[in-house]
Amino acid sequence: MSVTFTLDPRMTPELLAGIGALWADVSNAGGAVGFVPPVTADDIRPEIVKLLAAVADGRARLLVGRGADGSPVATALLTYNAARIMRHWLWVHTVMVRPSLQGQGHGRALMAAVAGEARAMDGVESLRLTCRGGLGLEDFYARCGYREVGRVPRAIRVADDDYRDDVTLWLPLRQT
């Protein structure tokens, strides 16, 4: 399957519903995207509204990957920093690939598209993201060129008896 990536696509009710369904699928498959299963698209809708508000007012950019049928199969959000002294790098979060498509190179394609879009933005020199430890995500992001720059042990509580590290990763976009 080929995936086409679009930065800041025109939001339609179908795209909104598709992002909600994707986010619920990723969350319910154990994905580290801010929710603990079980969740529904209705549970996630308030977060999507916040995400879209950030895009609408210029605080963030939304990258959506669509399959051949036009439905969203991957997303990533690039968020600008409010602090003037940190505007040279962006946060990357809400990185998702439809669970049934994982392991087929779509995650690598998504991260390459994220880096490509960020390189095209004025003044953006680096990307920063965090991920939940214990899932092998650090290795995935390392294969995409990111390096671990910090770790907070047990900062994420997935369940009463399940704590994970919060891992910070960094990708320079330009040679210094």
Rank of each mutant, 00 (worst) to 15 (best):
A54Y: 09
P153R: 01
D162I: 06
G67R: 06
A60I: 04
T40C: 03
G145P: 13
C144G: 07
V114L: 06
P99D: 05
I44W: 00
P13Y: 05
P38H: 07
V36C: 08
G70P: 07
V55C: 05
D166E: 13
F5W: 03
L63Q: 02
M111S: 02
R84Y: 12
A56E: 13
H106C: 06
V73E: 12
A83F: 15
L101H: 13
L90I: 04
T130Q: 15
A82S: 13
M96R: 10
V73R: 12
R164S: 15
I19Q: 00
V92R: 05
D162C: 05
P46V: 07
V33W: 08
G105C: 10
E148S: 11
I19T: 02
E138P: 09
A113K: 02
D162V: 08
A21S: 14
A74E: 10
L90T: 04
T75I: 04
G123E: 07
E138A: 15
S27D: 06
F35K: 02
G18T: 07
D25Q: 15
R45P: 08
T130I: 13
Y146D: 04
V73T: 14
F35M: 06
T6E: 15
G65L: 04
V152E: 15
V55T: 02
L16G: 04
V167M: 04
A112S: 14
H88P: 13
R174H: 12
P38C: 00
P153C: 01
G136S: 03
L171Q: 01
P172W: 03
K50P: 00
T40D: 07
Y80W: 14
L171K: 00
G133M: 06
A21K: 11
E138C: 08
R151G: 08
D8S: 03
I85F: 13
R154V: 10
V95W: 02
T12I: 12
P38R: 06
R66E: 08
A17N: 09
T79M: 14
Y80P: 01
D57P: 08
D42F: 10
L62E: 01
I44Q: 00
A32Y: 02
G103L: 05
V73C: 12
G20N: 07
S126V: 01
P38A: 04
T176C: 11
V149C: 09
R143M: 06
D57N: 12
G70A: 10
Q102A: 07
S27T: 03
M96P: 05
V26C: 08
P37W: 09
T79L: 12
P9C: 13
A83G: 11
D122C: 00
V3T: 12
H88S: 13
S71C: 11
G136L: 05
G67P: 03
D43Q: 03
T40M: 07
C144W: 00
A24P: 02
Y141G: 05
V3Y: 01
G70M: 11
W91A: 14
E14W: 09
G31T: 05
P99R: 14
F35G: 04
R174M: 11
G116H: 06
G107Y: 03
V114D: 01
L129W: 04
G30Y: 05
A41I: 07
R151C: 12
G20M: 06
F140I: 08
A113Q: 02
T94F: 15
V36K: 10
L52C: 04
I19P: 01
Y163H: 14
M121L: 11
S71A: 15
G136W: 10
D8W: 01
G70Q: 11
A32S: 07
A115N: 01
A82D: 14
P46L: 06
